[in-house]
């Protein structure tokens, strides 16, 4: 099993409820977001300012997106990679990959704050908290899931634009290699990120007033 986020850009309102629900649950410091709602066509994922050093992955160019400003989004957190760089690089085993669920967890009680994972993650998903001198990231609310709840972000999304799927379930095969449009998501990264996407489209009919 590989639990993964399926994010549906056709439903996403860009409301940022998911990102704030995550802060509400875990109280990330000002300036840190484990989940970020990214505007299609507007941002460079690999320039995430919490990613303190440039990563080694060369990004695939984002497929061009001619989407109106501030209207179409994908919500992204840690991608719970199949070959997580964070797990590989951590010298003390603070990052682990759950063999059963595939969730990549980070344990702050073990973390020594070396920052290796922050540098190694191709997605800027692992953040460095300078006040605590430790790394931190989305652990797919594994404690909530173990308690029979869904993740805070999924539960809060008003339109069901984030789902948790099992990437190994053949029924999700169609999403296997769908790189998102307008976001330079390194789908080919060696870490094999698990997040998958449903692409948004413009309304079928759009009428704008003529010029002048």
């Amino acid at each position: 099993m590989q639990k993964a986020f399926l994010v549906d850009g056709s439903l996403c309102l860009g409301c940022n409820t998911c990102a704030m629900a995550c802060k509400n649950q875990y109280h990330q410091d000002k300036g840190i977001l484990w989940r970020k709602v990214r505007e299609i066509g507007a941002e460079e994922y690999h320039n995430d300012n919490n990613n303190i050093l440039p990563t080694l992955v060369s990004y695939q160019k984002a497929p061009k997106a001619q989407m109106p400003m501030e209207r179409f989004y994908f919500s992204l957190a840690c991608n719970h990679c199949e070959n997580p760089a964070c797990v590989a690089v951590c010298p003390v085993g603070a990052h682990t990959k759950d063999p059963e669920t595939g969730i990549c967890k980070h344990d702050q009680t073990i973390c020594i704050g070396c920052g290796g994972c922050v540098k190694a993650c191709p997605f800027g998903a692992s953040k460095f908290n300078e006040k605590m001198n430790q790394a931190e990231k989305c652990s797919m609310c594994w404690e909530r899931q173990a308690d029979g709840k869904t993740t805070a972000c999924v539960q809060s999304c008003p339109v069901g634009a984030i789902a948790i799927i099992d990437l190994h379930d053949p029924k999700y095969k169609e999403y296997a290699n769908a790189a998102p449009i307008g976001i330079d998501y390194a789908i080919n990264a060696e870490t094999k990120p698990s997040t998958r996407f449903i692409h948004p489209t413009m309304p079928k009919e759009v009428y704008r007033l003529p010029k002048g």
Binding site: Q25, Y26, H27, Q28, D29, K30, I32, Q108, N129, K131, M132, E136, C141, E143, R144, D147, G148, K149
Partner: peptide, 21 residues
């Protein structure tokens, strides 16, 4: 509380673990 919260800064610090309903 996790240790971080005792810092006298204006934020509630990471990370408040979810402890079960």
């Amino acid at each position: 509380f996790p240790g971080g919260i005792l810092q006298a800064n204006e934020d509630l610090n990471t990370k408040i673990p979810y402890l079960g309903e």
